[in-house]
Write a protein that binds this DNA or RNA. Structure first.
Length: 433
RNA sequence: UCCGCGAUAGCUCAAUCGGCAGAGCGAGCGGCUGUUAACCGCUUGGUUGGACGUUCAAGUCGUCCUCGCGGAGCCA
């Protein structure tokens, strides 16, 4: 029995005989010459069999084997410029683990999105999906590395929660031992408690929004990283956020060249993603919209998707929009002491029309202000009692932000829709597979 | 929730004015010693999303329904 080799390391085995375990992604029958392209999860390698030299059983199997059958293929690794990937396996032995029983639905030709989403469990095997999801994994690791290396501690927040964080967004309700409970829409409030206990923290997990949104930027279940730290200000937040996003872009450019190539991503645009990012105030953003878009845009309105695109088009890298109207933002945002109608908040808009990927800001440290905000926002006090405690026992200025993973992946990969950025997207009216 | 578009073979699509429902891919069989979404020949393919209606005649026109796609609002 020869060594099991992974396709991603196949170059290390040149001249040696190894076994690759995987699936027949595709094949070409040339009569007395058979080409199989075998995928093992780490890559695809071409396995070649000549009728003249290969064992009879192996050759016959290769000739007959249906697409997506699972196989063990043994052969000598040869450098071969004509083969995709540059290496090829000259097969000396081959066994089927299982012969695919039905016609494989996904062919190398085009398919519609409805069909592909219905076959998502199989679509994941294709090279484009491999590229996207490897980049997703790299982005997540880059985020974790950046935060871990900058003194942040991972401290996860609960998924089952007793109340809305921001009150406005629709929540998924579930049953908690007979009591209503909700799937979290943000780790934000618990993060603040964690930050008061540990200083610099972050949570990383799934987030649920029952919004009836049907756009390329929405999922019902998505992943978010939320750093939060004590003694942090609005400026501190923007510095950490731009550092993290730059690090994400640089890491993907460095480690995922092949994948970006598969996706035909213009990497020159990603190379520009380096701190510092431009910062403009909400007031200035409104001016841009009035000049180049809607002249009647009202101060105090939130930006629509076309407005965000217009703003981000003015810059060649992500842009912060800060000091939003206090009314527009969550109840816990700290108002600007010099100008209370705006708050110490900022969103980061990604380039190329990808819109908001980060929202965050400085939180109010003031007990009386937050008590008044709860009343103003019609929120019950009782579920927030513990949150108010944080302002009783050593309240300090602090800040934090949330970055949406799927929107970030969509932007880095330049995808049309976030549904391809997660293995199994949960969208309005869509739970299969 | 609102606006727009769509549903025809396993997949991607075509079908002129309402007049015999087609092609490519896939699959099956055969051929080919360098294929890369191969190529060549043959074969296989249908409750035209559902219900009702108009008509001598409906994939095509009308009403209702279901599902999907795109966008808006809202958000990350």
């Amino acid at each position: 029995m020869s060594d099991i080799a992974l396709v991603e390391n196949i170059g290390e085995y040149e001249g040696k005989t190894v076994t690759v375990q995987g699936w027949v992604a595709d094949k070409t029958d040339k009569g007395k010459l058979q080409f199989l392209r075998v995928r093992d999860g780490t890559g695809v390698i071409q396995a070649t069999l000549f009728q003249k030299t290969a064992p009879v059983e192996a050759f016959e199997l290769a000739k007959r084997i249906p697409q997506e059958s699972s196989v063990r293929v043994t052969g000598e690794v040869r450098k071969e410029p004509r083969a995709p990937g540059g290496f090829e396996l000259s097969v000396t032995d081959m066994q089927a683990v299982q012969l695919a029983r039905d016609e494989y639905p996904i062919t190398p030709k085009e398919h519609g999105i409805e069909f592909l989403m219905h076959n998502r469990h199989l679509w994941l095997r294709s090279s484009r999906q491999h590229a996207i999801l490897r980049i997703r994994a790299t982005i997540i690791k880059a985020i974790r590395d950046y935060l871990d290396n900058n003194g942040f501690m991972l401290l996860d927040t609960p998924i089952l929660t007793p109340a809305a964080v921001e009150g406005t967004t629709t929540l998924f309700q579930t049953d908690f031992y007979g009591e209503p409970a909700f799937l979290t829409q943000s780790g934000q409030l618990y993060n603040e408690a964690n930050a008061m206990a540990f200083g610099k923290v972050y949570c990383f997990g799934p987030t649920f929004r029952a919004e009836k949104s049907k756009t390329r930027r929405h999922l019902s279940e998505f992943w978010m990283v939320e750093p939060e730290w004590a003694f942090g200000t609005l400026d501190d937040y923007m510095r950490v956020a731009e550092g993290m996003v730059s690090y994400i872009a640089q890491t993907v450019l460095e480690l995922r060249k092949t994948e970006l190539q598969v996706l035909e991503r213009d990497t020159s645009l990603l190379e520009k993603v380096a701190a510092p990012f431009p910062r403009i105030s909400y007031d200035d953003a409104v001016k841009i919209i009035r000049e180049k878009g809607d002249p009647n845009f009202k101060w105090g309105d939130d930006f629509g998707a076309p407005d965000e695109t217009l703003i981000s088009e003015q810059f060649d890298r992500p842009v912060f929009v800060h000091h939003y109207p206090t009314e527009m933002k969550a109840f816990y945002m700290a108002p600007d002491p010099d100008r209370p109608e705006v708050c110490l908040s900022a969103d980061l808009l990604a380039p190329e029309g990808y819109g908001e990927i980060i929202g965050g800001g400085q939180r109010s440290a003031d007990l009386e202000y937050l008590e008044a905000q709860l009343v103003k926002h019609n929120l019950p006090r009782e579920p927030y009692e513990w949150y108010l405690d944080l302002r009783k026992y050593g309240s300090v200025p602090h800040c934090g932000f949330g970055l949406g993973i799927e929107r970030t992946v969509a932007w880095i990969c330049k995808l049309d829709h976030v549904r391809e950025t997660i293995p199994f997207a949960r969208m309005m009216d869509k739970m299969y597979p």
